[in-house]
């Protein structure tokens, strides 16, 4: 039931955008000219391309995120059973968090969390 419903949501989301775009494509006026197709840069023709090698800093944060997000996924099942398992679960997660915290501290000290 839930899985089919999920597919339903995907379909209806695509439908709502698709129908909207087709409808707007039909009713909206279309008049092409070269100036309209220019990218907006405050009214001045652009200099150079926009498809450039961008600063790496942004991506590095994504990599750190990836590491931590995987850890978070490990915490999810623990959080569910924490109440029923009690002390064992708590001790285990303390160990887990200490390791995770050390990782964060390492990244912090390595200035990986600092911009430029």
């Amino acid at each position: 039931m839930d899985k089919t419903a999920l597919i339903l949501f995907v379909i209806s989301a695509i439908a709502i955008v698709g129908i909207g775009m087709i409808f707007s494509w039909i009713v909206a006026p279309k008049s092409k000219n070269a100036v309209k197709e220019e990218p907006y840069e405050c009214g001045i023709p652009t200099k150079g391309t926009s498809f450039i090698q961008f600063r790496v800093g942004y991506y590095l944060f994504v990599i750190i995120f990836l590491i931590f997000d995987v850890e978070t996924v490990f915490i999810f099942p623990w959080a569910v059973v924490m109440k029923s398992m009690g002390m064992t679960a708590f001790i285990e997660i303390v160990i887990f968090f200490v390791i995770l915290g050390l990782g964060l501290l390492y990244a912090w000290k390595k200035n990986a969390l600092k911009w430029d």
Partner: peptide, 26 residues
């Protein structure tokens, strides 16, 4: 907004440009 002209820039990646609203709404 529905009645506004949809504009696409000259060098834009047209497929991805149109795909983005789908993903965000999805």
């Amino acid at each position: 907004l529905i009645l506004k002209e949809p504009l696409v820039t000259k060098n834009a990646d047209k497929f991805l440009f149109n795909l983005a609203p789908f993903i965000i709404i999805l």
